[in-house]
Amino acid sequence: DLSALRVEEVQNVINAMQKILECPICLELIKEPVSTKCDHIFCKFCMLKLLNQKKGPSQCPLCKNDITKRSLQESTRFSQLVEELLKIICAFQLDTGLEYANSYNFAKKENNSPEHLKDEVSIIQSMGYRNRAKRLLQSEPENPSLQETSLSVQLSNLGTVRTLRTKQRIQPQRTSVYIELGSDSSEDTVNKATYCSVGDQELLQITPQGTRDEISLDSAKKAACEFSETDVTNTEHHQPSNNDLNTTEKRAAERHPEKYQGSSVSNLHVEPCGTNTHASSLQHENSSLLLTKDRMNVEKAEF
Rank of each mutant, 00 (worst) to 15 (best):
L5S: 13
L5R: 13
R6L: 03
E9R: 03
Q11A: 11
N15A: 09
M17V: 01
K19N: 03
L21M: 08
E22F: 01
E22G: 00
E22K: 03
C23S: 01
I25M: 01
I25K: 02
C26N: 00
E28L: 00
T36G: 08
T36C: 01
K37D: 14
D39C: 03
K44V: 01
F45Y: 09
L48W: 09
L51D: 04
N52V: 02
K54S: 09
C60F: 00
L62A: 02
L62V: 02
K64S: 03
I67H: 00
T68L: 08
R70Y: 15
R70F: 14
R70D: 13
L72N: 09
T76G: 10
T76A: 08
V82L: 00
E83C: 09
L86I: 09
A91D: 02
F106I: 07
F106A: 05
E110P: 06
K118Y: 10
D119E: 02
E120G: 12
I123L: 12
S126W: 05
S126R: 11
R130W: 14
N131A: 08
L137E: 13
Q138V: 07
S139M: 10
E140L: 13
E142C: 10
E142Q: 11
E142W: 11
N143L: 12
N143T: 12
P144E: 11
L146M: 10
E148V: 07
E148G: 14
N157H: 10
L158Q: 14
R165N: 07
T166R: 10
Q168K: 15
D184T: 03
A193T: 09
G199C: 12
E202L: 05
P208R: 05
G210E: 15
E214Y: 08
D218F: 07
K222T: 02
K222M: 12
A223S: 05
V232S: 12
N234P: 09
P240V: 07
D244S: 03
D244F: 06
T247W: 15
R255N: 12
H256R: 02
E258R: 09
K259F: 03
K259N: 13
K259R: 07
Q261I: 08
Q261S: 13
Q261K: 07
G262D: 13
S264D: 02
V265G: 06
V265A: 13
S266W: 11
S266N: 12
H269R: 01
G274P: 05
T277E: 01
S280G: 12
L282C: 03
K293T: 12
D294S: 06
R295E: 08
